[in-house]
Write a protein that binds this DNA or RNA. Structure first.
Lengths: 115, 115
DNA sequence: GAGCGAGTTGAAGATTTTCGCAACTCCGAA
DNA sequence: TTCGGAGTTGCGAAAATCTTCAACTCGCTC
């Protein structure tokens, strides 16, 4: 396996390695959303959010388009949901119970629960 | 959902966001391996590999134990394989064909192919 | 118990990311 | 055509990460 391929994989994962970006992807799992909505839910400066969105766009994990005066974002592939789910499972396996995060995570893993 | 939980998730993904660490996890999918084997396959300095292993250990994604004079590493949970597989699927969906990486990736996704 | 192979750790410099501010673009309404 | 809301971009400072070198620990064997 070539070195560039691991780099591409690493870049992919590194891209998810930021709280704001994770949050964005979780929100987008439910369908396309305007930046304005994301901003309302994430508590971060507009310019910061915009930068994180740019990172996600750069690797192609999300796409954006204009709808009237709003800019919408959407996942470029639904596979992202699998990745997030797998991440949660690992976290569940790994967390003993630091800070009670485990309890919160368990709640999300209930069938039908959204992240 | 609490902020620390996204941070834990982000940390988890960020941990995978390094070529050497990805490579290690892929190798460990086949079962426990001594550091020496990893070193033989990865082309990186011993101390560097050791640091990357420490990162993986710190988040609890791998565990290590001594076997005679060798140090062995193993995945702490087989769920890691799912994560890597999901990552590959996304990469496949996202890559148009920059640098022919797509071809290489396709080969890995053949049923039965290992990473 | 000295020497050696196998790994790890600490520290420092280089590189990359992150984040807030200010300036800018784009669209729609007045 | 000017104004305001919605986002984006450029930039510099602060923080985190990466990489390498040297020193160190742990088991073995002689």
């Amino acid at each position: 396996m070539s070195v560039p391929l691991y780099q591409a994989k690493a870049e992919m994962f590194r891209t998810l390695g930021h709280p704001v970006r994770i949050r964005v992807l979780e929100l987008l799992q439910d369908g396309p959303r305007p930046v304005r909505d994301l901003l309302a839910e994430i508590d971060v400066e507009a310019s910061n959010l915009s930068q994180q969105l740019a990172v996600l766009r750069r690797v192609g994990i999300v796409v954006s388009f204009r709808e009237g005066s709003l800019v919408m974002y959407a996942l470029s592939t639904p596979d992202v949901a699998d990745l997030l789910a797998a991440g949660r499972r690992i976290l569940g396996a790994v967390l003993t119970d630091r800070d009670g995060l485990l309890v919160e995570l368990r709640a999300q893993n209930r069938p039908g629960a959204r992240t």
